[in-house]
Amino acid sequence: MPEYKPRVGIYGFTGCAGDQLLIIHTEDRLLDFFNAVEMRSFVMASSNPLETEIDIAFVEGSISTEEERQHIKEIRDRAGVLVAIGNCAVSGGPQAMFAKDGSFARRLKQVYGDIKFITNPVEGAPLDEVVSVDYYLPGCPISQSQAMALIARLIHGADPEEFPHPVCHECKLNENLCLLLDQKFCLGPLTLGGCHSACPNNGLPCVGCWGPNPDGNFEEQLGLLESFGIPHEDIIRRVRNFGGYKILAHIEKLSGKR
């Protein structure tokens, strides 16, 4: 009897497609991956997808149109396990930086004017605003090592391991001086790690592109940044750049206290 291979689909919604591209760029392991699964749908790699029942769906991008809302529901219905990959799918991405602030209709009109859309735009949202998500793989883009570790676990029927640590973890292992000590506008402690602290390695503060670290001490970090003379509004704008829907709970909790 031939060995059963999990049926896999890789999908992209609104985003830069960088996460799918990263999977394709994992050249030394791509053949192992494609051999270990039955790849049903991966439009970036092959234009002949087979849209059937699948065991695992990897989904990149945020949901930004009515058509995408229907499509992700349809994928969810036929996928055993659904994994959100990349910040747009996990948190909403930069397109969700004004999420739920009530300005969507105005902004849409300002940018596009009075045109007829092929499909109705909706405010960019992470996947879990529309469907249930089983696993999250944050990143902007996702890291090759984390992606391959997660994929290997899932295709062999094991639970993936999370890495719920701030950027500071890897930043310190890379022997960087803490930028907060220099009163720099760094979001490292508030941001999920896994990026190998790419920006601080080059002296640049973390801008939070991997999305919020759920354990981040938002209130204290805001107070610290404000004590550097950074205006409150600038901090909120910065955390919302990549924080999407997932930073809103932190902000709401804070405004409840103020």
Binding site: E161, K172, C178, P189
Partner: peptide, 21 residues
């Protein structure tokens, strides 16, 4: 106050905890 950044444990000469994956 704590930011839970973990830096104190990384720079401490006697902290020795590790995780295996």
């Amino acid at each position: 106050k704590c930011l839970s950044c973990g830096q104190c444990t990384m720079v401490c000469p006697t902290c020795n905890c590790y995780n295996v994956t």
